[in-house]
Design a protein around this nucleic acid. Structure first.
Lengths: 149, 149
DNA sequence: TTGACAATGATACTCGGTCTCAACTAGCCT
DNA sequence: AGGCTAGTTGAGACCGAGTATCATTGTCAA
């Protein structure tokens, strides 16, 4: 039942001062439903099968708009293609599971001590931080423990 | 007088089980001397003027090798081109000044508390983290304060 | 309803980065 | 020193993610 999230998706698109188009909703919903990081191309491939009229450039533009409006974040993986994750405005850092590829939000409060010491120790004034933590999420960890032991 | 750093550059290249070629030394030294993040293309442009025989692919390969050997780190900026910073093996996170583009190493110890709480709170097993902090370095901060006040 | 202007879709294009392959050379072995 | 061989180089073709262009379409405020 996507009523609530559906609603807020549309709201958030409009809130950015953008026109509410079916394509943008489509892309936003697909990304949110995926609950993991996807590249623009992956997203396009998925959507294009059921929406043959959807253009590739539109997907790129919609994702870029989402990033600007704080609805998504672009992760620059060590590979080379950018991948996108849906996120809410106050979560900009993620725990990325390398096994199941699920993405979890990191509580921003956990970063505060680090940022404070960067300021006090280096005299560095922080504007923004790019932090992504890669590893094994709790459930994959349990699974691998069970398999091993 | 680059004797010491020169020496260790060569050592570190060989230590990776790689052949010590003039090209690799060239690239490594240029990156280390820059003391800021540079894209492969920028590095190529700089070197190519004085070393016309140096190939573009060679620069890309040398940088990639440096990353693998822990001599450099690739920063995936929000733009799209990767930029590289020289770094020593135990520093993998950086403070990047948005004004002067200088790059400073972050003391890894400052990260420990964060990583511990990620483990205890989310049950997430950290493999590696990508952290880059953007803002104003101490000297640019002073300069802008002086100019403002 | 209508009209202005943002958004779309198709496609050409840019350009970072990789691949290929013949020529070369660092480093080892004798 | 001389030779061998596998790793490396350089040149350029190639790939593919992302962008620009532009005619067409659709949103939404008036």
């Amino acid at each position: 039942m996507p009523s609530r999230s559906e609603r807020s998706l549309a709201d958030r698109i409009s809130a950015g001062g953008r026109r509410l188009t079916p394509q943008r909703v489509l892309v936003a919903r697909a990304l949110a439903d995926a609950r993991r990081a996807l590249s623009a191309q992956e997203l396009y491939d998925r959507l294009h099968t059921t929406q043959p009229r959807l253009g590739r450039a539109t997907v790129f533009r919609a994702l870029e708009a989402q990033v600007q409006d704080g609805m998504a974040r672009r992760l620059e993986r060590s590979g080379h293609v950018s991948v996108y994750v849906a996120c809410d405005p106050e979560h900009h850092h993620h725990l990325v599971c390398e096994r199941c590829e699920r993405v979890e939000d990191l509580d921003e409060k956990l970063l505060q001590p680090l940022l404070r010491s960067v300021d006090s120790r280096y005299g560095f004034h922080v504007n923004h931080t790019a932090l992504d933590i890669y590893g094994l999420c709790a459930s994959c960890r349990r699974a691998s423990r069970k398999a091993a032991g």
